[in-house]
Amino acid sequence: MVNQSSRGPVVLGAQSRAGFSLAEVMMAAGIVATIVVALLALAGQTLTSSTDSFDRFETVRAYQAISSQFQMLPWDRIDRYITGEEGRIYFDDVGRVVDRDALESSMVARILDKGGLALPGEGGGGAESDAPDRSRRDLRQITIEVSTRPLMEDPFSDSRHVRRFSLTLVQLDQER
């Protein structure tokens, strides 16, 4: 801002009659642009964050549904999910399992096998243990990938829309 008090009438006032000066406009526009851009960026981030939050909500729902279901499933069924035999699992926006072609599907999940869980003391950090380095066959680690882009050709190709969860399952039924 210019200090007007030592110069009498405002010089700029005469100029203003002819409208906003270019500099004035440029300054205002700059300010506005800067602020708008900043705000838009913030809004964008906020929207992204909001979307992420929504996605988190949804994907956690899917994770919760899958984890609670998988704890009780026979392992051969889980195998079929891993191999894709059972297909992917589709969810609507409230976490219900839906058909893959359903219009309301908003998430899709796939299961990846990570093998047996290595226990502490069994190669997982237990250097003092005399236990052999082996994983427990009845403790199975899987990764659940949930994509919020179920309709994409490859929903899991864009990592921005994919969340990964780790889950350790135990074999409840008899030993195979």
Binding site: L39, A43, Q45, T46, S49, S50, D52, S53, F54, V60
Partner: peptide, 15 residues
């Protein structure tokens, strides 16, 4: 925008 941000942050924290 800040309100939105605040709401979203709240929502984010909630999520």
């Amino acid at each position: 925008i800040l309100s939105l941000v605040s709401l979203v942050r709240l929502e984010t924290r909630s999520s």
